[in-house]
Design a protein around this nucleic acid. Structure first.
Length: 477
RNA sequence: GGCGCCGUACCCAAGUGGUAAGGGAGCAGUCUGCAAAACUGCGAUGCAGCGGUUCGAACCCGCUCGGCGCCUCCA
């Protein structure tokens, strides 16, 4: 039984989907005007893992994640570069997809864009006006916060408090400082769409209400995003959606914590900003392995807590993940039935139970990883007793099926070595095998000087050797 | 001013009332021609500090200290 920490109530609650057997979830994606950073990566991964776990649990998931493709920042960027907004959004949607692919984050089942939902947005705005929850001023439409009694329910803020702390220049035309735009009239040179209030474009919050209702229905199960979206974005979404439909909107609200650098939120002004692209490009490891390390690192902390990113953190992850792939390499070797076989199933069952109860507890991925570490340790011990090919296959399969929930342990091999200069100078496998064969011969002759020389040569190229009991050796980069 | 988060061993990180998971690093040992890997052992009498509630608190309450976030665009 999955329990989820619901921001709405501030408590862990048993998750019960509205329609048994299916889950509808919506996650706020990105505004496509720039490369995504490691913080976006965390949010995307966390909800991808949630989706994977729900599916693993036997539920059918409809997962919508939007692209905000109308926005001030996009317009600004387009003007700076003297290109159309379309060029900017197309470029960064592509970039986002590239980043997610490298990260191993699956595409959502629906990826709606604001510009493709203008009719829904206009209709929703009309409904809010008709219900007296919104008003028109010139060509703009604002949500009337004072008319919506539950405003502040999600973020636990009171309208009066917000007023006191407001630092924004108050638009005199607004009835209340906290009123927010549903529709903005077009300024020259901006993209715009027709509406009953003239040419214009939607405010930020309305698109998510319109798109989630369109694709998931008026009431759906889970709505997620980063902590910073709680206010005002999600608060406003609730006001708009519940205001318009009179029904409950999302039933469970989930928010992931921030990725920080040196205990501080990442920001461009502090110069502590890491894009996903540059992490991959600067990585000393190949792409697939870098993605694996990033995932292991990002899931090593429970999703609601803060998480500090650094090169060292990635290296720590490398050391930890190494241990798993070293085991997988051993499991891939041949073996004969032996006393260890009997222990495999119980070990897998123990791990599976621990894994599930960790994930059930508000997606406690660090604990789930600990369960996998436990299985690693168990299998290493059983391996010492001897394991048949079949038992080894079963062991590897357990890591694949459980790891799949975390997008981990799907690689066939772990082919790199950080200490020895990375992947840039690659020796061919044939050449490596040849040298290893020569070394095996040298060892047979007890010519250890020669054997050690070959080992040193390979090490200089980033090839690590492990001798097996039968006299042959395995290697890895 | 309002709302909220964090502070657990050298590092990462679970645990949120019943007597401190796990990993990485380190040290010692087993194995090995030597390594590597693996395995075994060692490592917080204490969970920022001080009070309080309780038979019992890292977990609940209060205060203090330190760090951070949101209230304006933000994953």
């Amino acid at each position: 039984m999955l329990k989820i920490h619901n921001t709405l109530t501030g408590k862990k609650e048993a998750f019960e989907p509205l329609v048994p057997g299916t889950v509808r979830m919506y996650v706020c994606g990105v505004t496509v005007y720039d490369d995504s950073h490691i913080g976006h990566a965390r949010s995307a991964l966390v909800f991808d893992v949630l989706r994977r776990y729900l599916e693993y649990s036997g539920l059918r998931v409809t997962f919508a994640k939007n692209f905000t493709d109308v926005d001030d920042k996009i317009i600004k960027r387009a003007n700076e570069q003297h290109v159309g907004c379309d060029a900017i959004t197309a470029k960064y949607i592509q970039a986002y997809h590239d980043d997610m692919r490298r990260l191993g984050v699956r595409p959502a089942s629906i990826e709606p864009r604001a510009t493709e939902h203008m009719a829904d947005i206009v209709r929703l705005t009309e409904t809010l006006i008709a219900k007296g929850l919104a008003y028109q001023v010139d060509g703009d439409v604002y949500f009337d916060v004072a008319q919506y009694a539950d405003y502040g329910r999600l973020s636990k803020r009171r309208v009066e408090d917000l007023q006191a702390g407001a630092r924004v220049d108050v638009d005199e035309r607004k009835r209340h400082p906290m009123d927010f735009a549903l529709w903005k009239s077009a300024k020259p040179g901006e993209p715009s769409w027709p509406s009953p209030w003239g040419q214009g474009r939607p405010g930020w919050h309305i698109e998510c209400s319109a798109m989630s209702i369109r694709h998931l229905g008026e009431t759906f199960d889970i709505h997620g995003g980063g902590m910073d979206l709680i206010f005002p974005h999600h608060e406003n979404e609730i006001a708009q959606s519940c205001g318009a439909t009179g029904k409950e909107f999302a039933r469970y609200w989930m928010h992931n914590g921030f990725v920080q650098v040196n205990q501080e939120k990442m920001s461009k002004s502090l110069g502590n900003f890491f894009t996903i692209r540059e992490i991959f490009e600067k990585s000393e490891w190949p792409e697939a392995e870098t993605g694996e390390l990033l995932r292991y690192f990002l899931l090593g902390t429970q999703y609601r807590g803060p998480l500090d990113f650094s090169d060292q953190a990635l290296k720590d992850a490398k050391h930890a993940v190494n241990g798993f792939y070293d085991l997988f390499a051993r499991l891939a070797e041949t073996g004969e039935p032996a006393s260890g076989d009997a222990g495999v199933n119980p070990a897998i069952e123990r791990c599976t139970a621990a894994f599930q109860s960790a994930m059930d507890d508000d997606m406690n991925t660090p604990m789930a990883i600990a369960a996998l570490q436990g299985l690693r340790s168990d299998l290493n011990k059983l391996l010492a007793e001897g394991l048949s090919v079949d038992a080894r296959r079963k062991g590897r399969e357990a890591f694949r099926s459980l790891g799949q929930v975390l997008a981990l342990f799907q690689l066939d091999q772990w082919a790199f070595n950080v200490e020895a200069g990375g992947h840039r100078s690659r020796a061919s496998e044939v050449e490596i095998e040849r040298q290893i064969a020569e070394r095996t011969e040298a060892k047979k002759r007890k010519d250890f000087t020669r054997a050690d020389a070959i080992r040193a040569e390979l090490a200089a190229q980033g090839i690590a050797i492990e001798d097996k009991p039968d006299g042959t050796s395995r290697w890895k980069r």
